[in-house]
Nucleic acid binder design. Sequence first.
DNA 1: AGCTCTTATGAATCATTGA
DNA 2: GTCAATGATTCATAAGAGC
Lengths: 289, 289
Amino acid sequence: MGVNLPSAEICQGDCAQLLAGRADDSFDLIFTSPPYADRRAKTYGGIKPEKYVEWFLPRSEQMLRVLKPTGTFVLNIKEKVEKGERHTYVLELILALRKQGWLWTEEYIWHKRNCHPGKWPNRFRDAWERCLQFNKSRHFKMNQESVRVPMGDWAGKRLKTLGKNDTSRFNSQVGSGFGKNIANWVGRDLAFPSNVLHLATECGNKNHSAAFPMALPQWFIKLFTSEGDWVLDPFVGSGTTSIAARELGRNSLGIEIKEEYCDAARRELKRTKLKTGAKADDGLLFATA
Amino acid sequence: MGVNLPSAEICQGDCAQLLAGRADDSFDLIFTSPPYADRRAKTYGGIKPEKYVEWFLPRSEQMLRVLKPTGTFVLNIKEKVEKGERHTYVLELILALRKQGWLWTEEYIWHKRNCHPGKWPNRFRDAWERCLQFNKSRHFKMNQESVRVPMGDWAGKRLKTLGKNDTSRFNSQVGSGFGKNIANWVGRDLAFPSNVLHLATECGNKNHSAAFPMALPQWFIKLFTSEGDWVLDPFVGSGTTSIAARELGRNSLGIEIKEEYCDAARRELKRTKLKTGAKADDGLLFATA
DNA sequence: AGCTCTTATGAATCATTGA
DNA sequence: GTCAATGATTCATAAGAGC
């Protein structure tokens, strides 16, 4: 039993230390939402915005080491407002991570469909967060097909009768067959998404208030890993990333410094739905540093 | 005639020089979409990404001077991809503008509902651009009520067609600036928007193909100015910002280096619909450097 | 007027080819 | 070797034509 089941490990401790004991090139995806500056003050000692980059770099250095060359690092983050201004520590972090050896491949926008209510005289509600994609190499794994979305009625109409536009564009090609081109569209009812994700925040969740909805790590896990791959979240909080990984058949390691969050994450993981025939806690490893 | 009409001036030349002749503290809003690095090579000589900040700063220095203390500067920009990475010149520009004395108040996201098609092995289509808000002081003018939208899914549809409909309905002048049809909604629940704007690019428009839809400057003009205020676009292109300003009863100065764009902007401005009784070209000033 | 269907095209990006 | 030009790929929207 459990041989083909994904393992899910939750470790209590600081990822700066815990990752040091892990092997090089062992994870396919790092997805995380680190404690934002000045948030969770009790947990990480309240990182000051001015010290944020300095605090982050030793941790991202370990992440760079344990990530496979074809792997991806997705950082969900948003700068806070201080004295009426957006703080610049996220911009500085991006520049610093590039200096550390990361490639800044892309910036996805998570559009929070239902963002926090509130009103201020000088700004509107903040309805988006950054999902920064970093890589070790330009040649990383990406399963675009796994996140395709239903298309408009464009394709069906288009295929009935080809417009002049298609014909003329096609004619500009030299020496390839018409059928080859149109074959891409036959039976196609799914379109590739863009770099803007529309996800509602999960509100009204009693026990654990996660920083992001399950759908967020799900999307990136599907996109950047395959079944059996390894997912790491060095600031796993209440375990959302680990649960998403487990449900998708990926192995995972979640690191969390706060004991209560670890407990919550482990509880939730045990309740995770698995394939028929598996015991709920097969493959679960709950080590403590 | 024309006493209460907004003036609209289009000047041909480089804003670095032309702004030098303008008075301090004379504009309420600067809205612009500068030539992106390596784009519009024929017009601006194709600014190299590495040189972008250096190229921009003398111009933004003038902007800082001519902006009123309560005014706002909105910069629509997006970094290009180079060798598989997002370039960092926009991040560096934000940091440099702060050093120059600007406050980075907010970053709005323009979500392009119809972004450019295409497929690549390592990224999805780019569906968003930055609208960076900068100020001279924490105490700037902001008319939040002017951009409220009805609650429910009607809001999305309304925003989508904001440009065209508002344009044709403006003659009916309602204090809200939305046009008469919005009057139907007076008394219903209006909600404040968030910092994510959902607007389609205007494609398939033969006469003037603007980099951004009319609705984009319209939104910021309503938000950050009142009737009779002064709007500046130092890279006005085909005149979209100036037209939006004029239709909303704001005075405007548009600067554009390329003669053909100036001509197009002037043509469009003459066609702009105004309040009843006004001659179409009342208040228009088409100076050439 | 209100539909449907046709057509054009947009601040794109990457791999390949040629200078 | 680097760098510039070209071709291939792709989808949401609006204008316009036709009914």
